[in-house]
Amino acid sequence: MTSAEFLDWSIYVTFVMVMLSLAVAFVRLAKGPTLADRVVALDMMTISIIAVCGVAAVATGVYALLDVALVLALVGFLATVALARFAERREARGGGPEE
């Protein structure tokens, strides 16, 4: 097995594994009994998509995809913080912490 072949195989395996993690996170997003479960699942999906961007940059050689990953990582944090604050406010209003 040459090194190029090995890289190709690694890229295939990585894609499958990241897609698997996306699917598992999506199940939690759909089922998740509480809001906190859904927020964590969404965060996990963001990180998986960042991984997809990185692997796609290696696979295709389009390094602009790395900028996509960078922006996604920075903005994903904002999404998590905004959702956390939304949950906090709803609890403060007495709307019940669940669902």
């Binding site: 900028d67 922006v71 920075l74 944090f77 904002l78 913080v81 905004a82 604050r85």
Partner: peptide, 23 residues
């Protein structure tokens, strides 16, 4: 010459200020 430009730059800078405003 590469992906980017005024519009995307402005959006990213706005995100920075929004993060600061939330915190």
């Amino acid at each position: 010459n590469a992906p980017g430009g005024g519009f995307i730059g402005g959006l990213i800078a706005a995100t920075g200020f929004v993060v600061y405003a939330i915190a």
